[in-house]
Structures are given as C-alpha cells and as structure tokens.
Design a protein around this nucleic acid. Structure first.
Length: 268
DNA sequence: ATGGTAGGACGCCTA
C-alpha cells in the first residue's frame, strides 16, 4: 500500500468553493478529503464536479444553510451505520466511514459546534450545545475503548494549546480557547487515546494556526490565527505517520475560506 | 475598546 494522504478542510460552502477544492486537489493530491460546513442539502451536492476531481466514492451529510460534512475518496469505503446523532439534533456534524485499505481504517469527520460568543453555558445555549456535543463524543469514545486503526479529523472549533493561538492571554475568555473547552477537548482525546498528528510533526512551543478570521483588515499582517482544525490518529498508527501539510496559501486565495486545508500522510 | 467580514438566502442567523 503506497502512502495514503488524508485531508480535512472547513470549506465554508462546497458549491461556492468547488473551484478552490479543485485547486486544493491539484496542489496536494489527497486520496481522501473530509469537508466541513458544506452548507448544502444532499440533493444539491455537486457530485458531478467532485467526481471529476477524481473522487468516485463519496458520502455526504448536509442540510440547508448550515453545517454539513462530506467524505470524498479515491478509494472505496463503506458508510458506517449506528454512529450517534449527536445531541439528538440531526444537524449534520459527523460522518464515519470504513476505508477499504489493507488492514482496514476507520475514519471520522467532525464539525463541532462553534459555541457562540459568550463562554457561559447558562447564558448561551450555543456554548452549552458545544460542551454537550463534546461530552457525548467523549462518552462514545470511552465506551468503545482506545481507538484502533482509526483517524478522526475535522473542525473541532477549539485551539487547545497556548501555541495554538496568537495570544494565549488575550484569548482565555474567547470561545475556542477557554479553559473549560480545552479541558473538554483533551478529555475527549484521552477517552479515545487519540494521538495529535499535527503536534507529532510540530511540537510545542512552535505556533500552528489553521484559521484566520474574515474580520481582519489584513489577515496575514495581523496573523491572529488559531488552530481549530485537527487530525487525531489512534496510537497504533502513530508510527505510520510520514508527513503533514498546513496549506496556508489557501487563505490568500480569492474568495478564500477562513480555514485552510490540513493534510497528513500515513504509510499503512 | 470596539467592530470588523463572509455565506445562505432574502430578513437574519451563524460563524
């Protein structure tokens, strides 16, 4: 089995940014692409255009206007049945598949709720939803035991480390980097015995960002980024990690997403 | 200290 390249990207509308997805595929040649925020009902998903990029195997879980995930693959896979409907909302924030590679590979694509502006579960139902979502995912991983032959990726909407944000002190009260969120995310990671594939290659205290706000005059000059997008692999795959890409040029493209593609290479 | 931009869908929610 040659190296497998897995890529995750919050595309912020798959229909609007299909040409940018084509550019990502030209630049990085991923074997599997996990998208978040497709903002596209399944019946309107641009299957033809995505198939033309070299992805004959596709799973989509979308809705009108918000959220939505998709997995696009050059390799066959089987959709996973029986994964939870998180918080019982049917809000299209997760897709799981079993990739048809030697030895098998379980792949999960997550879009964790952003959580609104106020970091208080009583005052802000969106923040409560974010914490509840992660608590459910943590319990799910704990019940399944340590992950084996598995990868989970996605926009987790939390930057857990001090070096995952442009200013730890200035973001301590900002949703995405509050201590309660960081504790929740690391608890999830511990419950599944997940290994942080990006920090495998870029250990602290080096800064890593995958998202820069639209609300900056000059995102590049300000460089007020956060690492919200993650790739976790089961411990048994840590030794199979061969490389990673944070595709920062994508943030500077015309009509860019505010997130950039993140990829890892696995030698299975 | 505040408000800044973007997408989907067309008044306003979400990020």
């Amino acid at each position: 089995m040659p190296k497998l390249r897995l890529l995750t990207w919050n595309i912020n509308s798959v229909r609007l940014r299909l040409p940018l997805l084509a550019q990502v595929v030209r630049d990085l040649a991923p074997d599997v692409v996990c998208l978040q925020e497709t903002k596209c009902p399944d019946e309107l998903f641009p299957h033809e255009g995505v198939a033309a990029l070299g992805f004959p195997y596709r799973a989509v879980r979308g809705m009108k206007g918000y959220n939505g995930t998709a997995i696009l693959s050059r390799l066959p896979f089987a959709p996973r049945g029986g994964d939870p409907d998180w918080c019982g909302k049917g809000d299209c924030r997760h897709l799981g598949v079993d990739l048809d590679v030697p030895g098998g590979l379980e792949l999960h694509d997550f879009y964790v709720p952003a959580g609104g502006d106020i970091a208080d579960r009583e005052a802000n139902p969106k923040f409560a939803h974010k914490l509840d979502f992660i608590a459910e995912a943590t319990a799910w991983n704990a019940a399944r035991g340590p992950a084996r032959r598995a990868v989970m990726v996605g926009d987790l909407n939390i930057a857990p480390l001090e070096c995952d944000v442009w200013s730890h002190k200035q973001l301590l009260d900002v949703v995405s980097h509050t201590p309660v969120e960081v504790e929740a995310l690391t608890g999830w990671q511990r419950a599944g015995a997940w290994h942080d594939a990006i920090r495998h290659f870029v250990p602290p205290p080096e800064k890593v960002y995958t998202w820069w706000s639209y609300r900056a005059r000059d995102w590049q000059a300000a460089d007020r980024g956060r690492r919200l997008d993650h790739v976790w692999v089961s411990q048994d795959l840590a030794g199979a990690l061969r490389g990673h890409v944070i595709h920062k040029p994508a943030r500077g493209w015309t009509q860019a997403s505010d997130h950039v593609p993140v990829a890892i290479d696995l030698d299975l």
